[in-house]
Design a protein around this nucleic acid. Structure first.
Ligand SMILES: [Mn+2]
Ligand SMILES: [Mn+2]
Ligand SMILES: [Zn+2]
Ligand SMILES: [Zn+2]
Lengths: 135, 135
DNA sequence: TCGTAGTTTAGACATAGTCTAAGTTTGTCG
DNA sequence: CGACAAACTTAGACTATGTCTAAACTACGA
C-alpha cells in the first residue's frame, strides 16, 4: 500500500483532490468487492463532505484509468475490484460474498481455439458454499 | 419445440394462463438471451393484453420452476436463458450480444480441488469480438 | 488579481424491478 | 347451472441504482 496516493493518482493523469484521495485510500486496496454505495458509506465516515455524485464520478474515472475494474456477477450487484491482474471469482450463494481465486488455481484450456470467437479476456465464475475452516 | 406448451407448464406445476403461454412460447426456446423488457416487447406483439408486472412475475416464476435461468453478465443487463444444461458464455464487446458456448468446447480443471470452497456450479465468461465468418 | 479549466455538489431525472390493492378468470362443488 | 374461493392479472405507486445538469467552488498560471 503506497505511502503516497497523490503520486499514484498523478501518474495515471488524475488530479488528486481531497475527495479522490479519500476514495482511493479505501477502494484501491480493499478485498471487499464493494458496491458504489458501500464505497460512499465507508468513505463518508472519513471524509463527510463527499457527495454521491462524486463517488460515482470518481469510481467511473478510476475504471476508465484502469485503477479499478467493475464486475457484475449477480443480479443488481455492480461491484468494484482493484485487483487488475487476471483472476477468477467465487461467489458464496448464501452470503453473496465475492472472493478472488488466483489465476493459477484453475486451468482452462481450448479457449483460444474456439471457432468464430476472438476471445480477449475470460474468467471462471464459480458459485457455491464457502467451506467452514476445519478447527 | 413441443406442440403442447400447456402440458409442459402443467408438468412443472404452473397453471397455463393465456399470458403465461404467450411468454412461454417465446422465451422457452429463444437463443436471444432477452431482457425482461425485450420479452415484454416481443410477446405484446402477439398478445397485446399483457402487463409489465405479469411479464416479470412470469419470468420469475419460470426461473423458480427451473424452466429458465437468469444471467447477469454485463452492467445493468439481466437476461434470461432457457438453456438449462451447463454451458459457457461469450459476450461480443462491441454489440453486447451473448452467445452460448457448449460445455465441451472448453476444458476447465482443478475446480473441485479448490481449497476452502464447495463449488456447486461454474461457467467460463469470455469477452471479445465475434470473428467475421470467412466468405 | 483575474480568468479559466477542472472539480464538486444537490437535486432532477432515467430505468429496472417490486409491491399493492383492486379487478378478472378459473376451477370446484352443491 | 350458480356461487364461491383461489389463482391470476393489472395499473400505478414505490424503491434502488445510476446519470445528468447547472451552479458553486478551487487551483493555478498569466
Ligand atoms: Mn458504471
Ligand atoms: Mn429477477
Ligand atoms: Zn476480484
Ligand atoms: Zn446461454
Amino acid at each position: 500500500m503506497p505511502a503516497d496516493f497523490a503520486k499514484l493518482l498523478r501518474e495515471k493523469g488524475i488530479q488528486p483532490s481531497a475527495q479522490r484521495l479519500a476514495v482511493a485510500e479505501y477502494v484501491l486496496f480493499t478485498k471487499e468487492h464493494p458496491s458504489a454505495d458501500q464505497v460512499w458509506a465507508k468513505v463518508r465516515a472519513v471524509c463527510p463532505v463527499l457527495s454521491r455524485a462524486t463517488v460515482y464520478n470518481t469510481l467511473n474515472l478510476f475504471v476508465k484509468k484502469k485503477l479499478l475494474r467493475e464486475l457484475v456477477l449477480s443480479e443488481g450487484k455492480v461491484v468494484f475490484d482493484p485487483k487488475m491482474e487476471a483472476h477468477h471469482h467465487f461467489i458464496d450463494e448464501h452470503t453473496g460474498r465475492i472472493e478472488d481465486v488466483p489465476w493459477n488455481a484453475i486451468s482452462v484450456s481450448r479457449v483460444s481455439g474456439l471457432k468464430g470467437y476472438d476471445v480477449r479476456e475470460y474468467m471462471v465464475v464459480m458459485r457455491g458454499r464457502t467451506r467452514r475452516k476445519s478447527c
